[in-house]
Design a protein around this nucleic acid. Sequence first.
DNA 1: TATAATAATGAACACCGTGTTGTTCTATTC
DNA 2: GAATAGAACAACACGGTGTTCATTATTATA
Lengths: 215, 215
Amino acid sequence: MYHKNEDLRVQRTKEAIRNAFVELIEENGYEAITIKDITKRAKINRGTFYAHYQDKFELMETFKEKILSDLLTMVKVNLPNSIAEYKGNSSLKTPYVTAVTIFEYLNKNYKLFNVILNSSGNMAFQKELQKIIWRMLIENGPEALIDEDNLLVPADYLTSYVASAHLGIIQQWLGNGRKESPEEMAHILSVITVCGPFYAAGFKNESFEGKVDGV
Amino acid sequence: MYHKNEDLRVQRTKEAIRNAFVELIEENGYEAITIKDITKRAKINRGTFYAHYQDKFELMETFKEKILSDLLTMVKVNLPNSIAEYKGNSSLKTPYVTAVTIFEYLNKNYKLFNVILNSSGNMAFQKELQKIIWRMLIENGPEALIDEDNLLVPADYLTSYVASAHLGIIQQWLGNGRKESPEEMAHILSVITVCGPFYAAGFKNESFEGKVDGV
DNA sequence: TATAATAATGAACACCGTGTTGTTCTATTC
DNA sequence: GAATAGAACAACACGGTGTTCATTATTATA
């Protein structure tokens, strides 16, 4: 979190609130938290909280915004390279590297991320994340990597599929205690997404395109 | 919901509570609801609510359980056929039919399902759903469709990937207003899962297995 | 460093939803 | 038709909320 030219007292107070908030969420979950709890843990007056945030929901939003903007930045930075590279020699190196970077970021901020994914109202957050993940794969104006005319399924469903899948992997990883390295995770993601879940499950899928409906 | 030999008054009261609950969630979301709201809408005394449920969380749980058990039943019924069929002639007809059945079920219960997915604590629900979706694909004792030794990636991550992806598609579908038919949705799901997202996005992916990491 | 500005404190307040209790009324079961 | 059990009603203490106001402490700045 960045302090522009905020009064030192404000910086301290806000930081105390944020820390207390994260601590308490880890202990009892988002739902159970009260403003009273937060201010007690933060050792500030309850009234002071309201000088900075309307309620715990608004407080949570600030965390979400921070995470989303961080992630978006990473994607934006790497996207042009990914496209240039793929169009050049069909290499998927940059997306892979981007994924590694993101997992490293998640590794650092895992507590917060976990909290956000488990909090209520995470649907809105998921939607935002989907946009970012999708942007990682498509959507770059005329230089787009993917041509919508070539899609075998509607774009929005493909988006949802891939974005949710990636998020699911991230959740699993966080839930597992982040045992795998960011590189391993990026590899897993790449294999499943590029080769397909069916293939990753040990099937050969080349022959299936025409018979997925069983007809 | 099934009424065994419950007192008629209990049946009525519970039904009134459930209806009021769903209505209010659709109007204002799960978080905003109070017991007072529910009982007012249900036209029952507030104290009566507590005779049946501890709180709104427990009320929500009953909905989740119902949905999950319905879904599980559908999968269980179709699973043996799916496996026999696939091992026989590599047909994916039964999984496709199962998916259609599930989308039809969701189509009927979309309000409730939407509510559950958007409520807090949906992580636990997602986890349960993941199990079911996974069971749709793997896990049937010695007759299992998938051999874990053949997996290219760890089983739990493949699970999360596929399950989350499917759930994401469902969410997108519900959010879109369920315009596509259950058959269309089952087809979309099958194509992406069997052929892979990359292929579904218009890429040919046979040559990528070795270069997903960009090496 | 003195001063003006601003933030934090502490106490009080009305408000609202919660969960529980005891009594009375009403519908059901058998 | 009598016994049973659920629902209604009113009252209660409790705890969190959001706001206020006067007071104290800290910071910015000139």
